[in-house]
Amino acid sequence: MNKVITVTVNGVQQVLEVEPRTLLVHMIREILNLTGTHIGCDTSSCGACTILLDGKSVKSCTILAVQANGKSITTIEGISTEGELNPIQEGFKENHGLHCGFCTPGMIMRITELLKDNPDPTEEEIRWGISGNLCRCTGYNNIVKAVLYASAKMRGVPTASTEPEFV
């Protein structure tokens, strides 16, 4: 028996009919066609599917769509206007924080909450803070730099040079 749920997705209220067993990530990707949220594993290990549920970063493969009833969902498509980059996205671009781009939306959604909770994190806090999200390409150095850049920018302090220390 399908269930009808009401969710606010990137600021717009939607009424959707879903199978009770539908994973939230499948609802987002296949019913709402918001394909920026990715699936990288089947054990809640990789974090590629991370979104914000009522402002909290969650792995949307580990939540049923019906559990989101009455809640607010933010995906990568909802964090900035197309054509503009928010400070986190800009940090990734300026610091080469992405290669293949597959883990990137999940990372950015996780970092969005991380910086809300801790606007001026240390490197160590960033590494622990993103340890639920796997990246196979970058080796994380430049993701950490991207977060430091975003943190500085959001706090209105000068951002560090983004030139690589590759001498």
């Binding site: 920026g36 980059l85 671009k93 781009g101 990137t104 939306p105």
Partner: peptide, 11 residues
């Protein structure tokens, strides 16, 4: 980068 940062890659 821009398309990936907006979740607009085509995988």
């Amino acid at each position: 980068d821009v398309r990936f940062l907006h979740g607009k890659g085509h995988y």
